[in-house]
Design a protein around this nucleic acid. Sequence first.
DNA 1: GATGAATGAGTTTTCATTCAT
DNA 2: GATGAATGAAAACTCATTCAT
Lengths: 226, 226, 226, 226
Amino acid sequence: MKKKLSTKENPKQEERQPRRYSSEESRRLLIEATLDSIVDVGFSSTSVSEIVTRANLSRGMVHLYFDNKDTLLVAAAKHAAEVYFRNLSDQLESAGSRPQEIIETVILSDLGEALLNERMVKIWFAFRGEAHANKAITQFSDTRDEQLRGMIFDAFVEVAIEQGEPEPAKFARDTTHGTLALLEGMWTDFLLHSDSFSRKSAARIIFRFLSGVYPQHFDLDGAIVK
Amino acid sequence: MKKKLSTKENPKQEERQPRRYSSEESRRLLIEATLDSIVDVGFSSTSVSEIVTRANLSRGMVHLYFDNKDTLLVAAAKHAAEVYFRNLSDQLESAGSRPQEIIETVILSDLGEALLNERMVKIWFAFRGEAHANKAITQFSDTRDEQLRGMIFDAFVEVAIEQGEPEPAKFARDTTHGTLALLEGMWTDFLLHSDSFSRKSAARIIFRFLSGVYPQHFDLDGAIVK
Amino acid sequence: MKKKLSTKENPKQEERQPRRYSSEESRRLLIEATLDSIVDVGFSSTSVSEIVTRANLSRGMVHLYFDNKDTLLVAAAKHAAEVYFRNLSDQLESAGSRPQEIIETVILSDLGEALLNERMVKIWFAFRGEAHANKAITQFSDTRDEQLRGMIFDAFVEVAIEQGEPEPAKFARDTTHGTLALLEGMWTDFLLHSDSFSRKSAARIIFRFLSGVYPQHFDLDGAIVK
Amino acid sequence: MKKKLSTKENPKQEERQPRRYSSEESRRLLIEATLDSIVDVGFSSTSVSEIVTRANLSRGMVHLYFDNKDTLLVAAAKHAAEVYFRNLSDQLESAGSRPQEIIETVILSDLGEALLNERMVKIWFAFRGEAHANKAITQFSDTRDEQLRGMIFDAFVEVAIEQGEPEPAKFARDTTHGTLALLEGMWTDFLLHSDSFSRKSAARIIFRFLSGVYPQHFDLDGAIVK
DNA sequence: GATGAATGAGTTTTCATTCAT
DNA sequence: GATGAATGAAAACTCATTCAT
């Protein structure tokens, strides 16, 4: 699907190809090509030409399906966010229902290959870099949405109560916030030092912190599910 | 993502001002204008026109002093990084020398108004969004440089030893990494939710985690300096 | 001079209407939509999209029935001219056969609501503006065709003879030309000042001029039919 | 100044020409090229490319001096109107001050080579064709402005009084309106039949009408100045 | 026949860069 | 050195036309 813009020729003389995709297919190809371009050449070098070349579609396509480039970029941001949340949801679905398990799943999923990889990280940071200049993108640039945050919070509340914390809600709110901040920090780390980044270390560090505040429920290896 | 040049018309026709700046002064004005533009209209809308209008300098200046726009952008990234580190250094200078104090100072400085503010955050995330497409920018997009990291690590090692950790280096490495990740996460939080962000909460959360792993050296209010 | 396609969204999703028109019907709808578009958004903003949207027909229709846009425009010009002349003919049919009556009928018809109205005027001037760039349109941009001119001329000759003009043909030729010029001038007036235009004044002025050159046959109120 | 777009090459290899005009000169060249293009290829075929090729200027020029094509078109309309009125004023300046002379001068000037020629006529009708779609152009599409109309009216009032008309103002208003309409009609005639058009005939016809309503002041050859 | 998705040439516009002054 | 007018490549976008269905 990818095709370098600069790659001069594919040797087999591109035969006039009136191949059609469904409307939905074409939209998807354009969004995918947009994300590819952002990953490969960066946000500011992602032109319509770059996109349609990668998608191997005509340039009119962008305006046919998205009206303008901006709308396509927003759609791409939306798509990236959906992929992230869908994937996380799927992994949570197959997890246990105990609070520690939920928390462990979120952390390990967020640090797992499926979500945390070069492509994803570049896309997220590219959109965040542009977010404040484009309000439509802003809404899709937060990986930690309310629903997710609520779920983690509820899990932490349960654990905090079990632990006999005097102010479980407050304690849970802080540890939720901190855990999400740690995950964000790990993504930044991956962006800036993807070569030296270790998913295992990242997980261990987070669980080390959690084991500090919830010693009966977490250890360095993750959740202690009783 | 393009926007009209932000016509900041000052209505009183700015009378032709042939005042000359020193070469260094002009460079600084251009860099500052570049950062202002990134903050106000975003990276992708930051054009040479936008910059020279803001700097109130002639359009040729950019190429006279920086050869091309790209070099100016890199210089602006470098400048932003220098401002960040100089400020942090200054605050560390006037801090105590005990390990807990060093760690506390880094955390509180990094969360303080001087470093963590809308302008700074927008600039950092803008550059990070473009970092992978511009290798020259990459090197200035990491807030956590080696020297800083080393200093924090050394402080944590000392504390870990005092605490009697069996593997103080490993423990310190993890807590260093985790603390920096938490700070990064807090910056992201500020970017995405600057209205609801609380420096106090952010600090409390970080110290809560630290008090979990170093119970004799930190509590919710910061470092316990004995 | 370009404008967004005038999105005349009718909010109730026009339910897919596979009703078929006859070929002649479709041609007519397209021509009418073309003229509507010229009236509403102007010649240069009249695109195929604009036309087919207004006609509520498929985009291929234009090329199916007219080969290309240009041919459709020419057909629309032809149609507009036909409407004008048919209408004028009809009104002449029901007029008296005396020369003054013929002249009066032409003048009053040409200034009447049926012929001289905003739609007609905009259409004529739009086509005239493009006429010299499109030879096919040129032939339909003259409201004063040979047949009409001949009829008026004949009427004036008769009147001039009755009046005892020494050179009735020359006199009639001039007054024919002048009368048609006056009518053209009144149309221009209507185009540029449709709000302050008065059909009555326009007629009175023309008859005032005619009463000057044919005092026994015309007065301010029109023809004096003896 | 004119250069056909399609004219392939001027044989002397166009040497890289960094020739500069003054800002005002460049503006004028662009306006002139715009009018040339409208005359030669019509309004709807007048693209920025067409204009800059004719002006032999770079394409950025249009946006440097006029911001966008539309503004240039309006400036061209304004310029055309100014040329028309300046020329007419000049000719009136050197005319006598007697009312008949003023009227005669207006008529003969308006029908003279300097004002009524193919270029002028095409330009005026092109703008009028677009006028209703572009309000900025509308204001420059009326050849008969208030000042001119007032001057003619005043002259006719004087003449009407001399003639002993019972309602000189009303009479003058009608003859003013009629004379201007006749002139407009003659311009239309010139547009549509420039080959058979005769300035002499046009003048004679107008004066014939005037001699009908002001028999003591005008005859077929123009004004009778006593 | 009829449709409207798809195309890509051509349009307007932007903007980094050049360079005469 | 300093300026900003000028350039033109490349950007975003439009739209008449084609053609598989």
